[in-house]
Every structure is written in C-alpha cells, then in structure tokens.
Design a protein around this nucleic acid. Structure first.
Ligand SMILES: [Zn+2]
Ligand SMILES: [Zn+2]
Ligand SMILES: [Zn+2]
Ligand SMILES: [Zn+2]
Lengths: 165, 165
DNA sequence: GTCAGGGTGATACACTGTAACACTCCGGCA
DNA sequence: TGCCGGAGTGTTACAGTGTATCACCCTGAC
C-alpha cells in the first residue's frame, strides 16, 4: 500500500528537516552520554527525510546498498533506541515510524494527524484534551501510564486542493 | 451510555455477556437485512466471552475442534464484518479485538482503557475529550474521519488490590 | 435450469516483530 | 601488555499478523 503523493515535504517541523533532527539528536545524546552511532544516525535520517511514516523494512531497504546490507532486526534495535529517547514516534495504527523534532518532555497531550489522501503525518499537542482525558480517567479510577491518540482524516493542504477524483 | 460508577462486569457491557451480545447482534442484523451466519456468531461469541482482547489466531484456535478447522483468514473476514457493524472494536496497540455492547451511534468520544496488570480492556466515552479534540483539530485545519484513543495503565480493580506478585 | 452474488474453505504469500548466537570494538584493569 | 566485560551490530531462524487468490457451496432472481 504505497501510493504516490509527493506534496509538501519542504522544511517543516516533523519531517523533511533531516539535518536539524540529526544535529539535535547528536547533541542530546552527547548530553545524556549515549552513543549516537552510524546506524542510529542513518535510521533517524531516513525517517526524518519523510513526512510520511516509514516501516522498519522500508528503512532497512533504503539503507541497504551494494556492500552494506542492513537487516530489519538492526533497524528495530535502532528504532527502539530512538523512540526511547523521543527522537521518533511509533504510529500504532500504521505500524510505522515518524521523526519528531519537538521536546515534549513528558509526552503529554500528543495527537497524531494522519492524512488519508497524502499520507502525511502531522503532530500536535493539546493540553485541553489532556486535561479532560485526565478527568475522565480519574472518574473511571484508571491510572494511566501511556496512551496513544491518532486521528485519521484529511489534512489542511488536501482540503484546500480541489476534490480530485 | 455506560455509567461506570460500578465495576460493570456483571451484565451486558464489554465482555462476559456473550449471550446478550449475540442476541443484540442478531436483532440488529435482522433489522439491517444482513446475514448473521454461524461463523460470525461463533467469532462474536468467542470475543464476547472475554474481557481481555483476543487475537485473530487465538479465535481461530478456539473455534477449531476435531472435525471443524477454522482458518485465520475466515476469522478475519468475520471480524471485518463485526467491526463494520460495530459489534467488536479493534485495539490497535494490541492487534486484538474486544466485543462491544454499546450503541455509540457515531463512535464519538470512545476511549479504551487497557490494564497492564490484568489485561482487561474497558471502554468508556468522554464528550468533553471529544469536544476539546474537535477544537484542536479545527485549529489545525484537519478534518477527522476516524480516530483511536487507547490508554494503557492500571485499572481500578488492580489498583485496589495490593501489589500481588 | 441457469446464472450471479455472498459466504466460506483452503493454500500461499507478504508484512511485522522477536529470539538466539557470534563477532567486533573499546574502555577498564591486573 | 594482555585480559575482560559490556554495548552495538550482523546473521539466521522463527513467531505473529494480515492479505491475495482461487475453488466450492448455497440461495435467490431470471
Ligand atoms: Zn513528537
Ligand atoms: Zn493530506
Ligand atoms: Zn464499544
Ligand atoms: Zn487490571
């Protein structure tokens, strides 16, 4: 299921700015005394070069070239590291990954906007939603540890375009 | 729908009341002029008998017996039908399915509560969350079509229990 | 009777993710 | 200097999830 929708991948926050994402990750890893290895850098670069989510096998394929075969399992390990450090997010409804240039220190209020037409994944936060969700959970006596909120629909850019058949 | 002041397991809610779920599905299918076949009934019964989510292969195994082998692909088709009609929900973060006894006519405000300790999946709704989410999406110029909101943590029952190993 | 459509059985396959083991590299230490 | 232990990676194998495709049956319409 790979269509073609090459629309906006200029320099935005989430995807398209691989340079910035890598520089930021490198700096943070230095601060945290973690290894930002070549594989981890390449995986992050591959993900950050897209606004659309990439599967692990996609990434492995992109990184492989004559003379260097990157196995999917290695990609998974790199993705584990990158998600733990908050450099990429996993999109549960797509089994795929997107890069993240934000800080969200505690991962609160995160909302993923997945466009059905162009496949772009945008990311936003909403303290109001988070607040109301907290109240709802408290009322149910449920103590949250993590949560996912993914919305599928039409992004602003695609809505602006005429309804192509 | 769904008061949730009590622990709500006894009657007719998310899981455990296979009889009621089947009767309700049968009635609705008759109203909508759809076929509630044996396989679909059995799959719904298997899912409704649990408060924990079941995978498609789990279901296939449970329905198979000497003399009747139910392939996973058949289960998937039945699940497609049941989810389209709203009789079961798919839990994206678990790749699994739970039955639903509610009406949620438009699927609005749905929140899944997944307990890490006992594995139970509870379902609630929150118009407030829905409202704030709508505002957030409108601000982003995003037109939603569907969405998933799944929270993982500790359910009320498990919190009440001392941390039994 | 014939035909079309929906549901099911069955095989095969693609995609997603993990386990287990070997190897390298590199810093610490006797 | 040589040894050791941990982190990262390569490799193979495998488990889990989901789909494509064809064949068969049944039922209702013509
Ligand atoms: Zn982010
Ligand atoms: Zn779009
Ligand atoms: Zn429901
Ligand atoms: Zn629990």
């Amino acid at each position: 299921m790979h269509d073609h929708a090459e629309t906006h991948d200029a320099a935005g926050c989430c995807g398209g700015d691989a340079e910035g994402a890598i520089a930021r990750a490198e700096r943070i890893c230095r601060e945290r005394d973690l290894q930002f290895t070549r594989l981890r850098r390449d995986v992050l670069a591959a993900v950050a070069a897209q606004t659309r989510p990439l599967g692990a096998y996609d990434i492995a394929e992109r990184l492989s070239e004559p003379g260097r075969r990157v196995a999917a399992v290695s990609v998974y390990r790199a993705l584990d590291f990158l998600t733990e450090q908050g450099f990429v997010h996993r999109i549960a409804s797509r089994n795929a990954f997107v890069s993240c240039g934000h800080a969200h220190s505690d991962g609160a209020g995160l909302v993923f906007l997945i466009c059905r037409s162009c496949g772009t994944i945008d990311e936003t936060t909403s303290p109001e939603v988070e607040h109301q969700l907290g109240r709802t959970l408290a009322k149910a006596g449920f103590k949250p540890v993590s949560r996912i909120l993914e919305v599928e629909g039409e992004c602003e850019a695609c809505l602006g375009r005429p309804t192509e058949a």
